[in-house]
Amino acid sequence: MRNYLFVYGTLKRGGSRHWILQDFPFLGRAKAKGFVLYDLGPYPAMVYGDGLVYGEVYDVPEEVLRDLDWVEGVPVLYRRELIKVVFEDGFSLKAWAYIYNGNVKGFPRIESGEWREKTFYFPS
């Protein structure tokens, strides 16, 4: 069985954690319908909702998913679920995605469905 992974935050190309996926096949950009993104500051939160979330799909081995579960704080911060994603050419498949478990109240919704990583500077 293939393990497809839909990423929408720090794991995307150019993101601070993309190095984890850089050696695995990039299958293309895709969108997930029925979800909303929230900006939590250093990373986004994808939750069920009335929007679209845009991201990237990778083909990864099972052991990488297990490692990413730890990185993403499963099962406390996020949970991993199989969801339907649709590529730009209309092809769809089921891919794993990390769904946020916390409360998004008070955080800004990302209306575009596309998260861009910011650089944070912390005073020393």
Rank of each mutant, 00 (worst) to 15 (best):
A30S: 08
N101Y: 05
L5N: 01
G55K: 01
L27C: 09
F120W: 15
K33M: 13
L5F: 04
L37Y: 04
M46Q: 04
A97E: 02
P123E: 15
K31Y: 14
G49A: 09
I99Q: 01
L5E: 00
G41P: 05
L68H: 06
F107M: 05
S112W: 11
V36F: 09
E88V: 08
D69Y: 09
Y8D: 02
L37G: 01
Y78N: 01
N103T: 09
K84I: 13
R116T: 09
L37H: 03
L37K: 02
L82V: 10
G28R: 01
W19D: 15
P25S: 10
G9C: 00
D50S: 13
G49H: 05
V86H: 07
V7S: 02
N101F: 03
L52A: 09
K94E: 11
E81C: 09
I99L: 07
P108E: 10
Y78M: 03
G73Y: 01
T10R: 06
E62T: 14
V71C: 09
L27M: 12
S112E: 12
L68E: 02
E81Q: 10
A32M: 05
I99K: 00
G55A: 08
F24G: 05
L82P: 08
P123L: 15
L68Y: 04
K33S: 13
K105S: 14
G102Y: 04
E72P: 03
V36L: 12
G34Q: 07
L5W: 01
Y43T: 08
V71L: 15
F91K: 13
V104E: 06
Y38R: 00
N103E: 14
G55H: 04
D67P: 08
E117Y: 10
L5M: 09
Y100H: 06
G55E: 03
E111I: 13
G41A: 07
V47N: 02
Y58P: 02
G28Y: 08
F87N: 05
F26D: 11
D50Q: 10
V86D: 08
L82C: 12
N101G: 12
I110F: 06
K105D: 11
P75I: 07
M1L: 12
W96S: 01
R13W: 12
E114W: 14
Y8N: 04
F35V: 03
G106L: 09
P44V: 07
L65R: 05
A45Y: 04
I83R: 00
G34W: 06
G14R: 12
V86K: 07
K105V: 12
Y54S: 09
Y98M: 04
E114R: 15
E63N: 13
G9L: 01
D69K: 04
F91Y: 15
Y38T: 06
P44T: 06
T10M: 12
N3K: 12
V64L: 15
G113T: 08
D89C: 08
E62V: 13
K31F: 11
E81P: 00
V36H: 06
H18G: 06
Y100K: 03
N101M: 11
D39N: 10
G90R: 01
V85Y: 00
I110C: 05
G90Y: 06
E56C: 04
Y4D: 05
A95M: 05
A45R: 01
F120Y: 13
K31N: 13
L82M: 13
